[in-house]
Amino acid sequence: MTHALMVPNLPAPGALGNIDSYIQAASRVPLLTEEQEQSLARRFRDDEDLDAARTLVMSHLRLVIAIARGYLGYGLPHADLIQEGNIGLMKAVKRFDPDRGVRLVSFAIHWIKAEIHEYILRNWRLVKVATTKAQRKLFFNLRSLKHSSNTLNPAEVQEVAKTLGVKPEEVVEMETRLSGQDVALEGSSEDDDRDSARLAPIHWLADSAAEPLDVMEAAQNVRLQEDGLHSALAALDDRSRAIVQRRWLVQDGEAATLHELAAEYGVSAERIRQIEAKAMQKMKASMQKMLGMAA
């Protein structure tokens, strides 16, 4: 018989005022036995028992903390990394199948890392730091492949490029981006020079998008675009809709290739490309018509 677990309601990282306090609180949450984990997972899967799901999440918070600690070198707050990892953990709990014979800890690692990776890339995307699968691999492995903190020499550049399957110039560019220094938005509090303080970036980084009317208009445009997308997709035939969704609207995992879809539908890759192009043209016309009517 599985004993009930007393699991506290733990606030988000940083809510306790100190990240160390959060880590200590998370470490006090009891670990689950395999029997307890299986029972809780089945309660959540079969009965939608949210208390069971909460217990599964809480008992694995220390796993998220350990994984997040490995990404501190990217200059992002530890609390934010943990919070994003917690989102990945919740996604893992939602998808966990207790009948697969795998412990949740093994299943959750992928989801936690994936969420943290996406968070890091979103924060570095201002400079388009990684836009392809190979560049992402380079981004997350470059530090570990460097033998020292010094700049890579030509031979090391070639070695890293060969190991990760990217171009040498991409290695050099990525290293330059990762070695860039942060610039303070505000002037130093110790600087009494008022002219220098006025030259701080915070004074010339105006954000017109923060105006209430602009924010409301942007939100309305987003809703119109989403409604237009759903309407345009609904107007397609089943095959065209499936191809567009699997090529461009994939939420988790990678988009399907033309050749993969060709094999699935028993046609050529060129035929899939033609169907996709025709469907995209039809959707574009439908969305433009809908946005024009709303203007």
Results as ranks from 00 to 15, higher is better:
169 E>Y: 09
169 E>P: 01
170 E>K: 09
171 V>K: 02
171 V>A: 06
172 V>N: 00
172 V>R: 05
172 V>E: 10
173 E>W: 07
173 E>R: 11
174 M>H: 02
175 E>Y: 05
176 T>E: 13
176 T>V: 07
177 R>Q: 14
177 R>M: 15
178 L>I: 03
178 L>N: 01
179 S>Q: 11
179 S>C: 07
180 G>W: 06
180 G>L: 13
181 Q>T: 14
182 D>M: 08
182 D>K: 11
183 V>W: 05
184 A>H: 10
185 L>H: 04
185 L>S: 06
186 E>C: 10
187 G>M: 00
187 G>F: 00
187 G>T: 01
188 S>V: 03
188 S>M: 05
189 S>L: 15
189 S>Y: 12
191 D>Y: 07
191 D>M: 05
191 D>N: 15
192 D>K: 04
193 D>L: 02
193 D>N: 13
194 R>S: 10
195 D>S: 00
195 D>E: 14
195 D>T: 01
196 S>A: 15
196 S>W: 00
196 S>P: 01
196 S>C: 02
196 S>T: 02
197 A>E: 01
197 A>D: 01
197 A>P: 00
197 A>Y: 00
198 R>D: 06
198 R>T: 09
199 L>K: 14
200 A>M: 03
201 P>E: 10
201 P>V: 04
202 I>N: 10
202 I>T: 10
202 I>G: 03
203 H>L: 14
203 H>S: 12
203 H>P: 03
204 W>P: 00
204 W>D: 06
205 L>Q: 11
205 L>T: 13
206 A>F: 07
207 D>V: 11
207 D>W: 03
207 D>S: 03
208 S>M: 09
208 S>Y: 09
209 A>E: 13
209 A>Y: 04
209 A>I: 06
209 A>Q: 06
210 A>D: 13
210 A>W: 04
210 A>K: 15
210 A>T: 15
211 E>F: 07
211 E>P: 01
211 E>L: 12
213 L>V: 10
214 D>Y: 07
